[in-house]
Write a protein that binds this DNA or RNA. Structure first.
Lengths: 336, 336
DNA sequence: TTGAAAGCGCTAACAG
DNA sequence: CTGTTAGCGCTTTCAA
């Protein structure tokens, strides 16, 4: 391993000067800087993050804490965060709970608190009181993305507004019998997003004096497969079918779509389906949805954290992220 | 920040003893260890990774280099890697190229070589000569997952065998007119996987003296949307239609399925469709496919690296990962 | 079984 | 503009 000393010797200056030159700090003559850069390049010198981190107190890495990696929303946010970090020369450290609540304490204590990161982005997880405290003690800037968390600022869409747009869209098409395919929370992570969406659906229905029927409300766990099974069972067995389904996520809308197809129910003639997300597959599947852009949310949140690390004043109330109804072929006028 | 010194003072021992006790090293009396553990707990002490990394040379972190995060295969592998690392107390650092070839050099030089990681897992990317050299100079154990790379050991399925299973399945159903929906490589990352699959398809066809028609071969870029458009155009315009499509990925098979549906072509009566992956959506969509388990691949590769870090002798030829044909409803006998 | 002391490789004052 | 001098917070010999 070539170290800073090697570069210093090769250039004939002190290690301090090498450090300054390489980091682009002021107070180095153009000539010296050029020679240092050349020498570093030739020697293939790359600073040790451990050493510079220890000396400077900055790790040049950001952490992302999330319930799971392999879910559309999470990996999309991650992609956005990563894009921003890459541009800023920061590394991305991923702390995942792996889909269960089992590792929470381990993750919090072993990994996150190890001073490995300069800032932390938390993805839609509710935090316990102890976890809150841990984060506060970390003293590094923190932000939450997608699903607000009490006491921490938050980047995300207006969930209730998005749901309202979806349901109002159905209502404007003349639907009155509108079912709900609900999102999940059986993994011990308890987001509040599913709850907000449920409540917003109920509120929109109530605002128009439309009937809520328990039998039209099914649990799809935010997943294609579960939603398909649940919707199919419901559509097949219910006495009177709804003419429209509001699905709390696109993946569940896909499930509803396939369930309808398998039952020979025509969409949108007999059944309209609307989702939320604008998942990559929504366009090719023709699913009407409320678009949100998780990648942009992640990028924006990362940007906020980065600028604070550069000394900017913290943005305490990040602006709500945009959402937008995208009409496709899965929704149409209520049947007769 | 409470440091090791604080724990030492609280316990009345030296920092060396605290360090040993906390890491479970031999040569600490049971009593001392217990007192150290208690004190550390009470003080909320967590070692600084920068400091211990600098002193010990081990970072307790593993890097994953990948072309992009938000793709089914990549994020699934990541999930598996993460699971293993979590269990071993290692942190996960993600180096993504963000879907373009633009950041390659930056990523290699700035991030990876910074001694931030103890081992590196590379996900199906071809490497340049210079990159190879960089990796070798890193001297940390390295492994490739999914799509072999010359000169580096590799964890993945037998791609050619998987393709062969898929195509043979169609042939065994009596199909002779079999088209191919090809995977991509337009992002400057140039995997070799699409090439292998193309060749294996051609080989399987040749082995049975079946005709290859250029017009039946379309480019779907491994994506739902692109595949749907391309397949739809092909099916709509071609003079004679194939009776089956082999798709180099499930996402493209979904596209083919939807394209057929939109054209009123019945699956599998008029058109059989087979994919590769066993994507989460394959089951609910009824797509026959060759299953691979990226999560297991990632976990296995991570395990190999971890055990080498513990001193195990390197496994130079990791066993090929399993694949398996899963028959569903998208394939059936060739139409009379 | 424990402690003292010397770094790990870099950055950050403080001088010059 | 540049060099000197201390550390950053741990781990790791080497002694005791």
């Amino acid at each position: 391993m070539t170290g800073i000393e090697d570069v210093a010797v090769a250039t004939g200056v002190s290690t301090a000067t090498v450090s300054r030159a390489l980091r682009g700090l002021a107070g180095v003559s153009a000539g010296t800087r050029a020679r240092v850069l050349t020498a570093a390049q030739e020697l293939g010198y790359v600073p040790s993050s451990a050493a510079s981190g220890l000396a400077s107190g900055r790790t040049m890495a950001m952490g992302v804490l999330l319930p799971q990696i392999e879910r559309w929303y999470f990996s999309a946010v991650l992609e956005g965060v990563d894009r921003q970090l890459r541009a800023a020369g920061y590394d991305l450290i991923v702390f995942s709970l792996g889909g269960t609540g089992m590792n929470r304490e381990r993750v919090f204590h072993r990994s996150i608190l190890r001073k490995r990161i300069d800032a932390l982005l938390v993805m839609c997880m509710e935090l316990t009181e102890a976890e809150h405290r841990s984060l506060r003690e970390l003293e590094s800037p923190t932000i939450v993305v997608g699903g607000s968390v009490q006491g921490v600022r938050h980047v995300g869409i207006d969930d209730a507004g998005a749901v309202s747009d979806a349901v109002e869209h159905l209502i404007s098409l003349g639907h009155t019998k509108i079912g709900h395919v609900r999102g999940g929370g059986d993994d011990g992570l308890s987001f509040e997003v599913p709850r907000i969406r449920e409540e917003a659906y109920l509120a929109a229905m109530a605002a128009h004096n439309l009937p809520i029927r328990d039998e039209w409300s099914v649990f799809g766990d935010f997943r294609f497969s579960e939603a398909k099974v649940a919707v199919k069972r419901m559509l097949a067995t219910v006495r009177e079918r709804p003419t429209a389904l509001f699905c709390s996520s696109d993946e569940m809308a896909f499930g509803a779509l396939v369930a309808a197809a398998e039952l020979g129910i025509s969409v949108p003639a007999e059944l309209s389906i609307v989702g939320i997300d604008d998942h990559e597959f929504a366009e090719p599947m023709g699913v009407t949805t409320v678009r949100q852009k998780p990648e942009e949310q992640g990028a924006f949140a990362a940007e906020l954290l980065l600028s604070e690390l550069e000394g900017a004043v913290p943005v305490l109330k990040p602006p709500t992220q945009p959402h937008e109804l995208i009409q496709r072929t899965s929704t149409g006028p209520a049947p007769r």
